[in-house]
């Protein structure tokens, strides 16, 4: 790794922000907390952490960050969401209170708390396409799953065993990546590495990049 890595924000309204910042640092990115529109404008990629998606959505809406987040996704900013972050990125959410605020952009239907309550939270192994080195040990905490994925969405991983075997728990659509589980809690940084590679290839928003490169409007979120 040579030179300074890309600047990747972690949405820091609530949730396990510190763990994501540490994971980003260990794969060579410069992780910065993002709570305000000006901080969002300065990053080349963004992580939506685990947490409570209702809380994160409400605080974002009340502080005027929700529309800038939606605009950033539309403009092609690479975004990775884990757990609550997956819910925030989904175009459609099942099991949410009426009017829950989300960002959207990922053409999937996500079910909140799909595996059950906290007593059903679990750890298990998951194979994730694009992540070399064998299966990941994955931690699922009151996790969502992807109930339906649109045509442009690549399914990267499914639950291997147990009552929920076959459920979709990792997806990618262009520069958007989402996992039901929490790689930030295990010390295995391969998912963050995959995401930071995407950021290196497509740093920042298409409309704010100096070279003005436009490598395809089909990527990123179309809402």
């Amino acid at each position: 790794m040579t030179g300074r890595g890309p600047t990747v924000g972690v949405l820091a309204l609530q949730g396990d922000v510190r763990e994501h910042l540490a994971a980003l640092a260990s794969v060579g990115a410069v992780g910065v907390p993002v709570r305000r529109p000006a901080e969002l404008a300065a990053v080349q990629g963004l992580v939506l952490p685990g947490g409570e998606s209702t809380t994160i959505g409400l605080v974002a809406a009340r502080t005027g960050l929700l529309e800038p987040l939606r605009a950033a996704v539309r403009a092609g900013l690479p975004v990775y969401g884990s757990c609550a972050g997956m819910v925030m990125l989904a175009d459609r959410v099942v099991g949410a209170p009426a009017g829950q605020h989300t960002i959207g952009g990922l053409d999937v239907t996500v079910r909140r708390n799909a595996f059950g309550r906290q007593v059903d939270s679990f750890e298990s192994t998951v194979e994730v396409d694009g992540v070399p080195g064998g299966p990941l040990h994955a931690v699922f905490i009151r996790a969502p799953w992807v109930e339906q994925a649109g045509a442009g969405v690549q399914v990267l991983g499914r639950v291997v065993a147990g009552p929920a075997a076959g459920r979709i728990v990792a997806v990618r659509q262009g520069r958007l990546v989402a996992t039901s589980f929490h790689p930030e809690l295990t010390g295995d940084t391969r998912v963050h590495d995959l995401f930071v590679q995407i950021v290196r290839e497509h740093p920042g928003r298409d409309d704010r990049r100096a070279d003005g490169a436009d490598d395809g409007a089909s990527e990123g979120g179309v809402r």
């Binding site: 939270s121 679990f122 750890e123 298990s124 065993a161 009552p163 929920a164």
Partner: peptide, 24 residues
């Protein structure tokens, strides 16, 4: 052989739940 059996109630799952509540 990787253990694929889902394990519930582990320290990581219990403590990890609290990590998700941080800042709240």
């Amino acid at each position: 052989t990787p253990d694929t059996t889902p394990a519930t109630g582990t320290d990581r799952v219990k403590r990890g739940m609290a990590e998700q509540l941080k800042g709240g």
